Computed example of a mutant assay.
Amino acid sequence: MRMSDWQRCPAAPSGGALSSRRLIGALALVVVTATCLGVTKLLSSVSRAAHPLWIKPAELDFGEIWAQRDFRWSIHVQNRGSETVTVSDVFLSCGCQGTVRPRSFAVPAGQRREVQLTLDLIAPEAAAGAERRVSLPIVFRLSEDMGVARFVLRGTVRDALKVAPRVIQFGQSLQEGGRSRGHRLTVQALVPLKTLQAEVHPPIGTVCIRRRASNERGYGVTFSPAANLPPGPLAAVLQLHGVTEDGQRIPPYPVPIEGTVVADIRAVPERLDLGVRIVGELAEGTVVLQSLAGRSFAVTRVSLCPPEKDALSATVEPPAEQAAAIHRLHVRLRVRRGHNDALMRVSVRCLESLKPRIMEIPINAYGYDSDSFHQRQY
């Protein structure tokens, strides 16, 4: 039986033809490999020639340190080129908290410049661990023809404490002259500690530390603000210091303290608006001073600015120097044409405090002529 042409199998190549094909393939592979290596070397040389800045490898490794809020480290940037290199900006590209100084400078050929870094190496609560390796990319922005220079600062950071919450926030719960409940922190030591110490800067309260019975490395830290804090914003830092079993003092773990101390004595209204009046009319109003805690206080002095007795006057009820929890200030103003702006300064003194407090209450009115066609507004 004769097989058709399409059923026939192609003849196998001879040994010589197969060897030739293998040789050609091998030569092609060598050519491609050589080309790739050449391109790689070319790109590598171009990358190395992109900028002449250099930093000693030892300065890019800070070794093993304890976690801390303000870790200071210096690096020296050397210019190995033949021309001056201008650095327009230096920054950390990892989103890390820290500062770089100076941010811009020039490095002459063959010289070097010192760059100081201040880094926040306190780990987020979820990432805190006994030991962690960190890599901090540092980017130098150069002139347009050079692009950027990148270096990586590496090291090992040891976390000694895990604190929750990480901020003591009182909001507006603090009242002048009153005692407030303390704010409690939960502290977990990640390494064996001999003692845990705490201090507040500035000293605006007291700290109590107790070791938890159920956890030999657990602590309860309670901060209680002082009762004599003045009204206004509250800003302080609670520093937690751990001391290891061999006596090594660990850098402080800072916990910010925030809030507002609300004044005990307040004025209602805080601004006395006597409205729009006819010129020459006698406008009257009352401001009430009241202690939120119901404490007795005295109004020691009332001064008016401008001090025009014929146009502006104020009387106190009860009379000055008498102690009471509520005082009323009756204000009378002889209205003049246009804006009538004044300021009443009231000196008050609580019986528990010898230091008086000055309160400022703005007073305003507007005067117009009765025969005018239009009543002018503010």
Rank of each mutant, 00 (worst) to 15 (best):
F62Q: 02
A311M: 12
S313C: 10
H327W: 07
T286H: 04
R69S: 13
V148L: 02
L37Q: 08
Q197L: 15
D310Q: 11
G218Y: 08
L343Y: 04
T186E: 14
G242Y: 07
L117F: 06
S296N: 14
G275N: 03
V163S: 01
V77A: 10
E245L: 14
T35G: 12
H330Y: 05
G367Q: 10
V85F: 09
R277G: 04
S74K: 14
P13V: 01
S135M: 08
V200I: 14
L185P: 00
Y368G: 04
A26L: 14
A130S: 12
S353K: 07
E352S: 14
Q97Y: 07
I265R: 02
L329N: 00
G63W: 07
A28C: 11
A160Y: 08
Q78L: 13
L37C: 14
V237R: 10
V331K: 03
Y378E: 11
G247K: 10
R101V: 02
G232H: 04
V346G: 03
P124R: 13
R210Y: 00
S372K: 07
L27D: 00
R328P: 00
E284W: 00
S180Y: 01
R158E: 10
V237C: 03
F140Q: 10
S180T: 12
L185Y: 01
T186F: 03
L351A: 15
R158Q: 13
Y219G: 05
V30W: 01
A164W: 11
R132K: 15
Y378K: 10
A58C: 06
L153G: 03
N340G: 06
G232N: 05
L196G: 01
R184S: 15
S143A: 15
V85W: 09
V77F: 08
S14G: 15
R133M: 08
L23S: 08
E308L: 12
